[in-house]
């Protein structure tokens, strides 16, 4: 007899044996729900993430930087698409998923609720925000749900220039005039802590993490990934002569990691709750784009119908 308990054992055995779960496989309801939430949030983050950077496309300092920024933002749109498709394999319609973003029901990464005040912010985003996202995404290339893992492999390949172009912007500014260097430092000061928040709550405060690890949706904890990110980024900041805005930052010879200060979780919770500097602006921009694009969607369907009719005639 295959009761649910038995099915769950078979499911967990597959996961333990490092086999991927595919859309038509039996899976526990909670696994499906968990993934729908995680993948759709991830998709929304890619899409909303275009807004802060899009803010600088028309004002990039050179044609070269403009072309690069356009290419990056274009990639993020693609990433949103791969992930929305992965959500669809779990039996949720595309429309429903997007409606949940537009109505404010679904969440996206809080980092995109901060404003991009100067050109250096574009450097800081590529270096830190894409850098932090990459850490998470490299781990997710080995996540247990097949369509999600395959989307991640593609995304990671495309991400590889995002972080480098951002770091290059920062390196150039840091070597520039005192004013340019100050601008780079200011951007680092503002983006550092929100970037660390991207890894999510501390392990002690992350109640769903254990289940996600057991299901191998995640394979490294929030704190582990955050620590690796800090260790790597501190070195990169040193190389270009910028200072990480954390007075408690200190190399620990024993642990072979940096010790560092504490995240302001009140700020984090506030932004998640919708009270960050740009939450309302971001959601309004998405809704505006969606509504103003309605005629394009309608026209495309009408044109396809007309072509089909002409072909049949």
């Amino acid at each position: 007899m295959t009761d649910v308990k038995n099915l769950e054992d078979i499911f967990q055995a597959k996961i333990d044996a490092e086999q991927k779960i595919e859309p038509k496989d039996w899976m526990p309801d909670a696994y499906r729900k968990n993934l729908i939430r995680q993948i759709s949030q991830h998709a929304h983050s890619e899409v909303v993430g275009m807004l802060p950077e899009g803010n600088w496309i028309t004002r990039a300092p050179s044609l070269k930087r403009k072309a690069i920024l356009l290419a990056k933002v274009q990639d993020e749109a693609g990433h949103g698409l791969y992930l929305y498709s992965a959500v669809e394999t779990m039996g949720v319609s595309r429309e429903q998923t997007i409606d949940d973003l537009l109505s404010g029901k679904a969440k996206y990464s809080s980092i995109f609720n901060y404003p991009t005040l100067t050109w250096a912010d574009i450097g800081a985003i590529g270096w830190l925000v894409d850098g932090a996202a990459i850490m998470n995404q490299v781990m997710l290339c080995r996540t247990s749900y097949g369509p999600y893992a395959r989307a991640m492999v593609r995304i990671c390949k495309e991400e590889s220039f995002h972080q480098r172009q951002g770091y290059e912007i920062m390196a150039v500014l840091a070597k520039g005039t005192p004013g340019q260097k100050e601008m780079a430092q200011d951007a680092l000061n503002r983006w550092w802590w929100p970037s660390l928040m991207m890894f999510g709550p501390t392990d002690a405060n992350s109640p769903h993490s254990a289940q996600s690890m057991k299901w191998k949706i995640k394979r490294q904890s929030n704190d582990e990934l955050r620590q690796i990110f800090i260790d790597r980024t501190v070195q990169q900041a040193e190389v270009i002569g910028l200072t990480i805005p954390d007075p408690d930052l200190k190399w620990n010879e024993e642990t072979k990691h940096y010790d560092w200060g504490t995240i302001d979780w009140t700020e984090f919770n506030n932004v998640v709750a919708g009270n960050g500097p740009c939450n309302k602006e971001r959601l309004a921009a998405r809704n505006k784009a969606h509504n103003e694009g309605a005629w394009v969607r309608e026209a495309a369907v009408a044109y396809a119908a007309k072509k089909a009719k002409r072909k049949a005639a």
Partner: peptide, 19 residues
């Protein structure tokens, strides 16, 4: 003509690791 879509297009400062 979009070589900048590839990571090799960018010059990384000497000594920077993991990037």
């Amino acid at each position: 003509d979009k070589a900048y879509r590839h990571p090799t297009f960018y010059t990384m400062p000497e000594g920077a690791k993991y990037i």
